[in-house]
Amino acid sequence: MTKQTPLALWRRPTFWPVALLALLWLLNAALTPNFARIEVRDGRLFGSLIDVIHRGAPVMLLAVGMTLVIAMRGIDLSVGSVMAMAGAVAAQLIAVHDAPLAVVVAVPLVVAAAAGLWNGLLVTLAGMQPIVATLILLVAGRGVAQLITGGQITTFERPAFQFLGTGALLGVPFTLWLVAGVTLLVGALLRLTPLGLYVESIGGNERAARLAGVRVRAIKVAGYVLTGLCAGLAGLIATADIKAADVSNCGLYIELDAILAVVLGGTSLSGGRARMVGALAGALIMQTLTTTMLMRGIGQEYALVIKAVVALLVCLIYTPRFRGALQRLVGREVHAA
């Protein structure tokens, strides 16, 4: 056996998204006044960076689940609608039924998990393409949410619940803790249990995984359920943040942000390795772009255009053709040296 040669940094899978994020933050720190400043006010941290993470929290949560689904060659378009559903249920429980906090948190999560289960069963048992299967809930889910709230924007006051969205723990926004907690939990599931191996073997070669005894269907369903749960949690945060269930806007288009974040993070839409750290970086990249634009007084509309261009460029980097060209280029340099 030969000695392990350390992998060139730029070849490491999560290098690109993390590097891009770092570059963005550095540029911002240099060019945008006050970007890097973090101050303590009323015992909690304030600053643009904190803001980026706080606002990016829902997409980061979604990206965690979506990474697993996409790594298994699936996709979940319904996360935005599931967010709306979870938010609607929570708001309704507070405003109408005045339910205890545990119920307010638990019931929406159960609903979200059920939505994930539904998606998973459509994909595995009914054998639908994931895009179609989840499109159904995307279309219908928001309608269901609207029916739950009766078409109104349900507002509520419940400080304990609002803490989910606006509270701070040890000076750090609670959303950040949540994202960290979920990431660590799912990361641990992937790293410390065989789940990660199952997921990546299914994404890499489903036939081989089946022949090796992996329960392909069960793992896929589990992936969709987990994504549903993440969406539910994101829905709770979004609802708590604005003290209202605004069903028609809650999580609108967010599925696309989440998918983009995952793809930016280096997980291929055709399955394989699950890059969760990359996906989180991807989510932050997009939020940073948006926040920067706002801070510099450029309208959000430019952020959309820039997002589109960045997304395409990063995807281009991931295409085999471009990689081949890059490798040839770098290879030549190495030979020359």
Partner: peptide, 17 residues
């Protein structure tokens, strides 16, 4: 899926600009 998603953001952004 990705290309037209980017196209969607691009066109929407352009319209808002």
């Amino acid at each position: 899926f990705i290309v037209t998603l980017a196209g969607m953001f691009f066109a929407r952004g352009l319209a808002l600009i």
